[in-house]
Design a binder for these strands. Structure first.
Length: 271
DNA sequence: AAATAATCCTGCGGGC
DNA sequence: TGCCCGCAGGATTATT
């Protein structure tokens, strides 16, 4: 389940090969993603040169002179380079054929998206109203404090709201709250400035460390390898209900927030 | 404005 | 062996 670090790792993995390369042809086997892939996408991309591969939130932005291909990996999407002629398997929905390699989009659950947008990507409806990037300077304790004053919802759910800050999914929301020593069900507006500062730093830290860890998997993007091995790292609380906290030994507690599971340590996150 | 629910889809583990 | 069920999950969209 790609979170922001996986998407950034993917960007770094594909950018060296993709940038300045020409997309010769495009094969679309299955248009049924989160939104249907445009019937004209293949024609729009054919014989066009990739200029840059960027990222906004969890969207990859493949920029051409005449527009941008937005790629979202959803829950189960991945991009891999495979040798030309590699037979597709069940969930390999799209191939971008470069001169001597193929960038293959795979997505078993089909929650992802490939969308074409002309003009400034920032104006796309899906990107226009997103909150700040967690790793950029605009996101800090002061911002988080000010932005949460009117929010009575639980802090964990607010962190996962893309209008507040982008790229914080269920795993890292839980992990960051543990690192900051804040219970996930605290009303966001009740956090003090020290807490929002700790939390903002915890979010930045946990994401930056995960991106660093992903760097070791970059070689997997070239060649025919198996699945990316990224992010089987150990978590402090995520998916560890009933197991002892790695810091204090207190059993990790699981609760339900907005149809999502949350995990916290009552010892390290007393309130 | 803010909060909540529903929704897309497949794979997997548990129970039987 | 295999079926049914529940759950997992990002993020939009609709609804209250």
């Amino acid at each position: 389940m790609p979170e922001l670090p996986e998407v950034e790792t993917t960007r770094r993995g594909v950018a060296p090969t993709l940038e300045n390369a020409v997309i010769e042809t495009v094969t679309v086997r299955h248009t049924g993603l989160r939104w249907p892939i445009s019937e004209t996408l293949a024609a729009v991309l054919a014989d066009r040169r990739v200029r840059k591969v960027e990222r906004r939130a969890k969207y990859l932005l493949v920029r051409f002179d005449h527009g941008t291909l937005l790629i979202h990996l959803g829950m189960s999407g991945s991009l891999r380079f495979v040798p030309p002629g590699t037979p597709p398997t069940k969930h390999d929905h799209v191939d971008l054929h470069l001169h001597d390699t193929v960038l293959r989009y795979r997505d078993p659950r089909r929650f992802g998206a490939l969308l074409w947008h002309e003009g400034d990507p920032a104006t796309h409806p899906l990107l226009a109203r997103l909150g700040p990037e967690p790793l950029e300077d605009a996101f800090d304790g002061d911002y988080l404090y000010r932005a949460t004053r009117t929010r009575r919802q639980a802090i964990k759910q607010v962190l996962m709201d893309n209008h507040m800050v982008v790229g914080v999914g269920n795993i890292y929301a839980n992990e960051a709250l543990f690192l900051a020593g804040i219970r996930p069900d605290r009303p966001a507006c009740r956090l003090g400035t020290e807490e929002t500062t700790r939390l903002a730093e915890a979010i930045r830290g946990v994401l930056a460390r995960a991106i660093d860890a992903g760097g070791s998997t970059l070689r997997d993007f070239v060649g025919a390898g198996g699945e990316p091995g990224y992010f089987q790292q150990t978590y402090a609380v995520y998916a560890r209900a009933g197991e002892p906290c790695r810091v204090c030994g207190t059993p990790v507690v699981q609760i339900r927030q907005g149809q999502r599971s949350s995990f916290y340590c009552p010892g390290c996150q007393p309130c």
